[in-house]
Amino acid sequence: KELVLALYDYQEKSPREVTMKKGDILTLLNSTNKDWWKVEVADRQGFVPAAYVKKL
């Protein structure tokens, strides 16, 4: 499975999103959308801005 690194803190703004902290390592589930990537963090799945994460 592919992992991404959170480059910035992100606070979810809708139930479809997830909160992450800078430095978090997240499991990447889907990166087909260039703006929003689906990730899993702490047993929750949701979207984060693609610009806020980097593939490892």
Rank of each mutant, 00 (worst) to 15 (best):
N30S: 13
D24Q: 14
K38C: 14
L56F: 11
K34Y: 08
S31R: 07
E17H: 06
V18N: 03
F47G: 01
Y8C: 14
M20C: 06
W36C: 07
L29W: 06
I25K: 05
P15N: 11
L5F: 09
E17A: 06
W37I: 05
F47E: 04
D9E: 05
I25F: 06
T19E: 04
E17S: 06
L28V: 07
L28N: 00
E2Y: 11
T32W: 09
M20F: 10
L26M: 12
V53P: 02
Q45S: 13
S31N: 10
A50Y: 02
T27V: 15
D9R: 03
A50K: 06
M20I: 14
K13N: 09
L28Y: 02
V18I: 15
W36E: 04
W36G: 01
K55S: 08
N33G: 12
L28H: 01
V48G: 01
A42H: 15
G46T: 02
A6T: 04
D35R: 13
K34E: 10
M20N: 00
K13C: 12
K1D: 08
G46Q: 01
F47Q: 04
R44N: 06
V4N: 00
M20E: 01
K1G: 10
D35E: 13
V48Q: 00
A6Y: 01
Y52V: 08
G23N: 07
V4R: 02
A6G: 04
N30D: 15
V41A: 15
V39G: 00
D24R: 03
L56H: 05
T19M: 04
A51C: 15
L56R: 03
D35H: 15
L3A: 06
L3V: 08
Y52F: 13
K38I: 14
N33Q: 11
K34R: 12
W37S: 03
R44F: 05
Q45K: 11
Q45H: 10
W37D: 01
K1S: 10
S14C: 11
K22T: 07
K22L: 06
A42K: 14
E40D: 07
E17C: 07
A51V: 09
S31P: 07
E12M: 12
V41I: 15
V18P: 01
K13P: 05
D35G: 09
I25D: 00
Q45C: 12
L7E: 04
I25E: 04
N33D: 15
L26D: 01
R16D: 13
R16N: 13
V48D: 02
F47Y: 15
V53Y: 01
V39R: 00
A50E: 04
L7I: 11
V18G: 02
Y52D: 05
V48N: 00
R44S: 06
W37N: 01
V48L: 02
K21N: 08
P49R: 03
G23S: 03
W37H: 03
L26Y: 11
K1Q: 11
D24S: 08
K1V: 14
G23V: 01
R16E: 14
K55W: 08
T32P: 04
V41D: 13
L3M: 12
S14Q: 08
L5P: 00
K55N: 07
K54I: 15
Y10N: 00
Y10T: 01
K54Y: 10
D43P: 13
E40K: 10
E12L: 08
V4K: 00
P15M: 11
T27N: 09
L5M: 14
L26C: 09
K21D: 04
V4G: 12
G23I: 01
L7C: 09
V41H: 15
K34T: 11
T19P: 07
G23F: 05
D35Q: 13
P49H: 03
A42V: 12
T27G: 11
L29P: 00
M20G: 01
S31M: 09
R44M: 06
K21Y: 11
A51K: 15
K34A: 13
T27A: 14
V18W: 04
A42F: 15
G46M: 05
S14G: 13
P49G: 02
K55C: 11
D35K: 13
R44I: 06
K34W: 08
S31W: 08
V4C: 13
L56T: 07
L56Y: 09
V41M: 15
L29Y: 03
K1M: 12
Y8L: 11
Y8H: 12
A6D: 00
D43N: 14
Q11D: 14
N30K: 07
A50V: 07
D9F: 04
V39T: 00
D43A: 11
R44D: 04
N33V: 05
V4T: 03
W36T: 02
P49T: 02
Q45E: 11
T27D: 06
L26Q: 01
Q45Y: 08
Q45T: 12
K34H: 12
V48Y: 01
L29G: 01
P15C: 10
D9H: 06
W36V: 03
D24Y: 05
E2N: 13
Q11M: 14
K54L: 13
G46F: 08
D35P: 02
E17F: 06
P15G: 09
S31H: 09
A50I: 03
W37Y: 08
A50P: 06
K54G: 09
K1N: 10
P49M: 03
K38S: 07
I25R: 05
I25M: 06
D24M: 14
D43I: 07
G46R: 02
G23E: 02
S14V: 05
K38E: 14
L26V: 07
K55H: 09
P15V: 11
T27C: 11
L5R: 09
R44E: 05
T27W: 14
E17Q: 11
L26N: 01
L7Q: 04
Y52R: 07
D24E: 11
V4D: 01
M20Y: 01
F47D: 05
T27S: 10
V4I: 08
D24L: 05
V39W: 00
V18R: 02
V39Q: 00
Y52A: 14
V41N: 15
A42S: 13
A50Q: 07
K21I: 08
P49W: 04
T19S: 15
G23L: 03
